[in-house]
């Protein structure tokens, strides 16, 4: 994984309240656009049984995996239902409304 900033594409590619999956420098991440417009990024594969996290349902705090409904905090990646954690990544929209993630 290469540390630093990565531009993923226009914010508009992500509908409000949903998530989309991106493959960045051999990492798979799911980026969500909350209803308040802010962004969250976590790893895209559910630690439970590999469910596609980007297809999950979210609110302001958590994402629920579509396969068995484990929930994970969008800020930290920690599971609130006893599954293993997702990784979380800093993410923001730049001046030209592109999604940017930072890899540590």
């Amino acid at each position: 994984m290469s540390a630093g900033l990565h531009v993923l594409g226009p914010v508009d590619e992500i509908p409000v309240g949903e998530g989309r999956a991106y493959s960045v420098a051999s990492e798979q991440i799911a980026v969500f656009r909350l209803r308040d417009g802010s962004l969250r990024a976590v790893s895209a594969v559910c630690p439970h049984k590999g469910g596609p996290i980007a297809d999950g349902t979210i609110d302001r705090a958590v994402v629920m995996c579509p396969l068995h409904q484990h929930a994970f905090e969008l800020e930290t990646g920690c599971s609130t239902t006893g599954a293993g954690p997702l990784r979380s990544y800093p993410v923001f929209a730049d001046g030209s409304q592109n999604v940017v993630v930072r890899f540590p």
């Binding site: 508009d12 590619e13 992500i14 509908p15 949903e18 998530g19 989309r20 999956a21 493959s23 798979q28 799911a30 895209a44 594969v45 590999g50 596609p52 996290i53 980007a54 297809d55």
Partner: peptide, 16 residues
């Protein structure tokens, strides 16, 4: 209906 409605969320890893 939405952008990327049918975009894959896979194949992100080898899955069963």
């Amino acid at each position: 209906f939405t952008p990327g409605q049918f975009r894959t969320s896979l194949p992100l890893e080898v899955l069963p």
